[in-house]
Amino acid sequence: MANNLTDSAIDRQNILNNSDFIENIQKFLGVTGMLYDGEYRFTTAQIADFYEVSTKTVKRYVESAEPELSHNGYCVLKGQKLKEFKQLFGYLIYADIEADFEEDINVPFKKNESDKQKLSKLRSLAVFNFRTFLNIGMMLTESERAKSIRSTILDIVLDSINQKIGGQTKFINQRDEEYFVAILREPVYRKEFTSALSQYLEMGNAKYSIYTDAIYQAIFHENATEYKAILKLEDKESPRETMYSEVLKLIASFEIGIADAMKDKYEEIGRKLTPNELNHLIKEFTAHRFWIPQLEDARIKMASRDYGFREVVHSRLEKYIQSIPTSDFQKFLGENSKSLQERVDENIEIFKRLKDR
């Protein structure tokens, strides 16, 4: 997680998309607000007061980052919703109808009008939920309090991860239930590919590592050595032990697809393929439009998760980095996520049956 949240919308979103992080931060800060429509709400004046900046400063950030804030829960109340909100919290929002805020609320005030009279004329009101309360704090550079809270947020995020997985993110991919399914099937598909290399390719034993790398290059633009270096894997650690289930499934699809294509080519030409012929075959196979959405999805997941969870950047996939969706936090850090050893222990009988085959 980047230390400077003010610069990176992706890093901010990676925190805001995790409900556990938000809950822990809210408990620590002890900030509530006005409970409306199932969420605590804050007005612009309340945000400004908390972070010790002017309402104009808050408004400037809203204007510059409105899509991000709206995505996270910022909204402008009008009509019936505003009427309900005023009935519930009118006595708390007088600070939002001061003269220097007229443009925001679109009310032509007269100086001799009372707060209640001004409130009755209020036609719109910007409100923030707790996520956007934090969102603003992550962006504010003018506020010392916001700077302090950013540091606290990062500490709480790291502590939350440590409590869940002990800070060891190298194998966070294995906490996904689908990974367990993928590694049970992976050896079968892998054997089809290696058997095809053995039967249909005229080349020495180096072909197994060379063409495994060729598939890696086709899918995520790195060979095994480069991948291991980026993730700082030990020599004895297999890259596939750290790959996400979606990537493993795509590798398996490539392996059995290329194995079938090799067999067809072998039967067509009546001899084993040369390396150049296999290289051309893989290039054609990868270029099929069928693979485009699957390759893009795998690259986005790999680049985004490794950046957000493992704090590493695959330079050749950097353009694919996005914020980690809420569903991924649940998948890898939520209640149903488990270590691989826990899943093995739960399914030990399956492994015994596989061993006896």
Score class of each variant (00 low, 15 high):
13 Q>I: 01
341 Q>T: 04
308 G>C: 04
38 G>I: 07
173 N>L: 09
43 T>S: 15
187 P>C: 02
310 R>W: 03
2 A>G: 08
294 Q>H: 15
29 L>Q: 11
185 R>Q: 03
163 Q>D: 06
80 Q>D: 15
17 N>Y: 03
181 V>H: 05
29 L>S: 10
36 Y>A: 13
297 D>P: 00
189 Y>K: 13
268 E>M: 07
282 I>E: 07
328 D>F: 10
351 F>Q: 09
18 N>I: 01
288 H>E: 13
79 G>L: 12
329 F>N: 12
143 S>F: 05
207 K>A: 08
86 K>V: 09
335 E>H: 02
8 S>R: 04
176 D>I: 01
157 V>Y: 01
348 I>P: 00
283 K>P: 00
335 E>P: 00
236 K>W: 09
261 A>P: 00
261 A>W: 04
3 N>G: 07
93 I>T: 02
226 E>L: 11
124 S>H: 04
159 D>N: 13
21 F>M: 10
298 A>R: 12
294 Q>E: 14
153 I>E: 10
50 F>V: 12
34 M>T: 06
342 E>W: 01
319 K>V: 10
188 V>S: 01
336 N>I: 09
192 E>V: 01
172 I>S: 10
355 K>D: 06
115 D>K: 14
127 V>T: 12
91 Y>P: 03
346 E>A: 15
4 N>D: 15
66 E>V: 02
137 G>W: 02
224 A>Y: 01
42 F>L: 15
47 I>F: 11
147 K>C: 06
32 T>A: 15
264 D>R: 14
349 E>T: 05
252 A>W: 03
131 R>L: 10
20 D>K: 10
314 H>K: 06
213 D>T: 06
31 V>W: 04
99 A>F: 07
355 K>H: 04
123 R>D: 12
22 I>R: 05
143 S>I: 04
103 E>F: 07
133 F>K: 10
138 M>P: 00
227 Y>W: 11
